[in-house]
Design a protein around this nucleic acid. Structure first.
Length: 649
DNA sequence: ACTATTAACT
């Protein structure tokens, strides 16, 4: 006869062998038949296994606990912990409440509070946090090391720095993790000075503390300080230090610095891991650095990281964002194992960006057929696909399907896509009616979408109406005023143009500069309209002069000034620079550097203007060159005088 | 319990 302990050990080893929900259910059936599943030790370990080791077994653990006659604190805590980092942290809170209601003899302990507070932090619910905090005081656990540390993080997430600091100050012996949490709290609340003061006062620092400071300084745009004060001064750097710097540079638009640092990290012998690889691929995707991305792809193939989902998704996104849709399709189709919702959504969005609306929708249906439920982001991509392919009816149908069939409440992003859908198709009244009938108060982005459409379709009255709305919501956006001014210019209302410009000057509104980038020999060259002279810019201008001359002689090109005058520039002196929008400079530079047969790939931060669009078409024909331009809104592929957007953008 | 990573609307 076997004793209890041996049975426990046997069950544990059987549990360990279960890697899927199916296998754990089978084991559970056996345990149930032998009555062993009512043993709290075995039941507790079953829940632990489901909650922490098997990704989709949480709900199984949940229903098991609900039917269990006398769950102990360990079982509750384990489930609360499992839910806290899941997609539904709210279930953590309900489980905590359930524990308090149904089991009078059970008292929540420090584990219960630490885990449920983590859930409240993930929910960013200040209200829930306050209530849980007060309960922890009742139980005398509010100054417990783990509970208090999580409280600091919770208040940080809710951007309540004073609450966080109060918890921190009331602790008798905060450890290094608590200090780190408190520094993170200051940085999350954008108080770099506060973080620095605390960092200096830390009794002991470890690597992580400095990594936190690097992340915070990079996010705050303090690139110099992050580099010199922390990164260069660190006696030991780990992979997190490097990755933080690399993505930090990218966040600030310093793509070459990011790419260089990745090269440097390889040079000093650091082996990339899945996080640093997704990080550098994200840099390539943002920058449109296709050639660099291909080098990273080569490394991924060699090193075996190609079997990791996140790496593959990032690779897919890189090819899509760099305009190489065929490679994106290849990565997608050859993805090992099951494609995740991220893979499908990324591919739908990638196709949509190129204007392949129908193919994007087909893919969406393939996704549904494969049994993956679309989420709110998938629908943004689907609606985006409809709007960029002019599929108005389809768009409306998917919008309804999302609400009625999938029960997803539309967010501002979805409403924005719908407004964009009607706007691009020229149905401005429908767009306006859609906005006024929204069940929530439209935000500035929604109105701005309509304003953009007014500009394209030259609707002065509606534009004035929209600007009144925008004046209430976000009066200081210079882009809106520029747009209105453009609309007046096209309509020939020069007096109004002057009025808008004058009011912009008096309000000191300056336009965010337009820039374009182009990759030559794995280096990104960026161009800003009206930028200072240097060798690269002179080269670009010289090349551009020759190009424009041929366009005028051979293509009958006439510069289109009206409507573009205020697109990239802010003052009178620069008005002459209208023919040198940054994308033209980037194109000219690339034409002078790239060998024949190569594709010119340009990335621009704003929408391309009509004149530049015309120039690109002509250049593609006269110089027999293929140009791929990614602007703020989509891809334009120019070839033999026409564009893939069919002039619909 | 604290740090780094992938998908979308202007």
């Amino acid at each position: 006869m076997v004793n209890g302990n041996t049975v426990d050990q046997l069950c544990l080893s059987l549990l360990k062998r279960c890697k899927t929900l199916k296998s754990i259910k089978q084991l559970h059936t056996h345990l149930f038949k032998s009555g062993l599943d009512s043993d709290t030790f075995i039941a507790g370990n079953l829940i632990l296994h489901c909650a922490t080791l098997i990704s989709d077994a949480l709900h199984h653990a949940h229903s098991f606990l609900l039917h269990f006659s006398n769950p102990d604190a360990f079982m509750y805590n384990t489930l609360i912990r499992g839910f806290s980092d899941s997609d539904h942290p709210h279930n953590s809170v309900t489980t905590f409440i359930h524990m308090r209601r149904n089991s009078n003899h059970l008292q929540p302990d420090s584990f219960s509070f630490a885990f449920v507070l983590k859930a409240a932090a993930n929910l960013r619910s200040f209200n829930t946090g306050i209530q849980l905090h007060s309960q922890s005081i009742t139980h005398g656990l509010d100054t417990h090391l783990y509970v208090a540390t999580t409280l600091v993080s919770l208040y940080a997430e809710c951007e309540q720095i004073d609450h966080a600091r109060k918890v921190f100050d009331e602790m008798s012996e905060p450890n290094i993790v608590t200090w780190n949490a408190m520094i993170t709290a200051y940085l999350r609340c954008s108080d770099v000075k506060g973080a620095e003061t605390l960092y200096k006062r830390m009794p002991v620092k470890d690597l992580i503390s400095t990594n936190i400071m690097i992340a915070g300084y990079m996010k705050a745009g303090e690139l110099r300080l992050a580099t010199n004060l922390f990164f260069h001064e660190m006696p030991v750097k780990d992979d997190v230090s490097w990755s933080t710097m690399i993505v930090g540079f990218a966040h600030n638009g310093c793509f070459n610095e990011a790419l260089d640092l990745f090269v440097e990290s390889r040079r000093v012998g650091l082996e990339p891991n899945e996080v640093s690889l997704t990080g550098i691929l994200s840099v390539c995707a943002q920058a449109g650095a296709l050639e660099f991305g291909k080098v990273v792809h080569g490394y991924i193939e060699k090193s075996g990281f190609g079997s990791i989902h996140t790496v593959n998704n990032a690779l897919l996104d890189t090819y899509a964002k760099c305009g190489n849709i065929n490679m994106a399709r290849l990565v997608f189709e050859r993805m090992p194992g099951r494609k995740t919702i991220v893979s499908w959504t990324t591919m739908v969005a990638g196709l949509a960006m190129q204007g392949y609306g129908e193919e994007a929708l087909e893919l969406f249906h393939r996704m549904e057929e494969s049994g993956i439920k679309p989420d709110e982001i998938t629908f943004i991509s689907v609606l985006y696909a409809c709007s960029h392919a002019g599929l108005v009816e389809h768009g409306y149908r998917y919008f309804s399907m999302m609400k009625d069939h999938y029960g997803i409440d539309p967010t501002f992003e979805h409403y924005g896509c719908m407004v964009d859908l009607y706007s691009r198709a020229g149905e401005l009244e429908k767009a306006r009616d859609f906005i006024t009938q929204m069940p929530v108060k439209p935000n500035a982005v929604i109105w701005r979408t309509l304003l953009g459409a007014c500009s394209i379709h030259g609707n002065v009255d509606l534009a004035e109406f929209v600007l009144e709305k925008l004046a209430e919501l976000d009066p200081n956006d210079s882009g809106d005023h520029v747009l209105l001014s453009n609309i007046y210019a096209v309509a020939g209302k020069w007096k109004n143009v002057a009025t808008v410009r004058k009011s912009m000057t008096s309000q000191r509104l300056t336009k965010s500069p337009g820039w374009s980038m182009v990759e030559v020999d794995k280096v990104m060259y960026s161009f800003v309209a009206g930028d200072e002279q240097n060798e690269v810019i002179s080269e670009a201008y010289t090349s551009l002069k020759k190009i424009m001359l041929r366009l005028k002689v051979e293509g009958g090109y006439v510069p289109e000034v009206v409507g573009s005058v205020l697109h990239d520039i802010e003052d009178e002196e620069k008005e002459s620079a209208v023919v040198t929008h940054s994308e033209k400079l980037a194109l000219a530079f690339a034409m002078s550097r790239l060998c024949d047969g190569k594709v010119v790939r340009i990335v621009k931060n704003l929408r391309v203007c009509k004149d530049c669009h015309t120039v690109m078409k002509l250049v593609s024909k006269i110089f027999r060159v293929e140009i791929v331009l990614r602007d703020r809104s989509r891809f334009h592929s120019f070839s033999d005088g026409s564009c893939s957007c069919r002039d619909y953008w």
